[in-house]
C-alpha cells in the first residue's frame, strides 16, 4: 500500500511546536508549544494562545467521546481542556520531571505519559536508573493511574497499538519496551543502538534515542525513528533514521 502525503496547510506559530493533535472536525488543531498551548484554525490560518503549562507544553491528544483535549508538559503535568470552550477541566501532576510524550489509545480509554531525567549513571555517562516510574498509564476519563511501569530514563516517546492492546515506550538508549495494557505486564521489547550517540569528539555522554514510534496496521511491528549515529552529537549532524522491528520476536 502506498500513501502519498500532500501539504495542504503551511503556517507558523510564534514558538516551536513539540506536539499537536487535530480536533473532531479536522479543521482545528491544538498545538503544544514552548510558550504554551495554541488553538489553531486551519481554515483561516489563525491561532490563539489559550493556556500554558509551567514549562514547555510537549504534547496534545484529543478525546473524541469526551470532546476534550489533553496536553502534557515539561512541568510533569497533564491538563484536560474542553474542546468546546478551552476551559480547563482537570489538572494532574503525573511526573516529577518532564512529560516527554503523551499518547491516547485508539479506543479512547487510556492515556500514556512518559518521563525520565537523563542523569549520569556511570563513569562514561550511561543513564542512571529511574527515580520514579518512567511510564504511566492513566484512565483518560478521570486521570486515575492504572499502571506505573519501569524503563530507563529518559523515555522520550510512547504509542499505543491500533487495537489498544499494547503500549510501547522508547528511550534515549534506543530501548523499546512493550506492555499489555490490560495487565501492565511487559510482553516484548528490543534495543537498537543505531539511534544513540556517545560523544567521541566533544563529550563523553549520550544524545539521541527514539523520538517517535508507530505500530504497523497489523500491530505486529513497530516503526521507530530518530537520529542516526553521530561521532559528535553536539554538531547535530545525525541523519534521519527509521527502522522497522518485529517487537514480538525481539528481546530486551
Amino acid at each position: 500500500m502506498q500513501k502519498t502525503i500532500t501539504r495542504i496547510h503551511d503556517f507558523k506559530l510564534p514558538t516551536a511546536i513539540l506536539g499537536a493533535c487535530l480536533l473532531e472536525d479536522h479543521n482545528q488543531m491544538v498545538a503544544a508549544c514552548m510558550d504554551g498551548i495554541y488553538r489553531v484554525d486551519l481554515s483561516t490560518k489563525s491561532h490563539q494562545r489559550i493556556a500554558e503549562h509551567d514549562s514547555y507544553a510537549s504534547s496534545a491528544v484529543f478525546l473524541p467521546e469526551a470532546r476534550m483535549f489533553v496536553t502534557g508538559g515539561y512541568d510533569g503535568k497533564l491538563k484536560w481542556f474542553s474542546a468546546q470552550d478551552n476551559a480547563l477541566v482537570r489538572e494532574q501532576q503525573v511526573h516529577s520531571f518532564w512529560s516527554w510524550d503523551l499518547a491516547l489509545s485508539a479506543d479512547g480509554r487510556w492515556l500514556a505519559s512518559v518521563t525520565g531525567q537523563y542523569l549520569a549513571g556511570d563513569y562514561k555517562y550511561a543513564p542512571a536508573k529511574e527515580t520514579e516510574p518512567s511510564v504511566k498509564i492513566l484512565d483518560a476519563s478521570d486521570g486515575r493511574v492504572a499502571y506505573s511501569l519501569p524503563h530507563t530514563p529518559s523515555v522520550q516517546s510512547v504509542v499505543f497499538s491500533h487495537d489498544s492492546q499494547w503500549v510501547a515506550a522508547g528511550n534515549l538508549m534506543g530501548q523499546v519496551r512493550v506492555w499489555d495494557v490490560a495487565t501492565g505486564a511487559q510482553v516484548g521489547g528490543f534495543e537498537s543502538k543505531d539511534f544513540t550517540s556517545w560523544g567521541i569528539i566533544k563529550s563523553h555522554c549520550y544524545l539521541g534515542g527514539i523520538f517517535a514510534m508507530e505500530f504497523t496496521p497489523d500491530n505486529q511491528e513497530l516503526i521507530v525513528c530518530g537520529m542516526g549515529d553521530m561521532r559528535d552529537p553536539m554538531a547535530g549532524n545525525g541523519k534521519q533514521l527509521w527502522q522497522r522491528w518485529n517487537w514480538k520476536e525481539s528481546k530486551l
Binding site: 542523569l119 529518559s154 560523544g199 566533544k202 563523553h204 555522554c205 544524545l207 553536539m234 547535530g236
Partner: peptide, 16 residues
Amino acid sequence: GMPWDNHVFQHEMHQM
C-alpha cells in the same frame, strides 16, 4: 572534553 557546547538539544544535555 567539551561537553557544554550544546548547539543541539540544549535542555536535553543540560538536564544531565
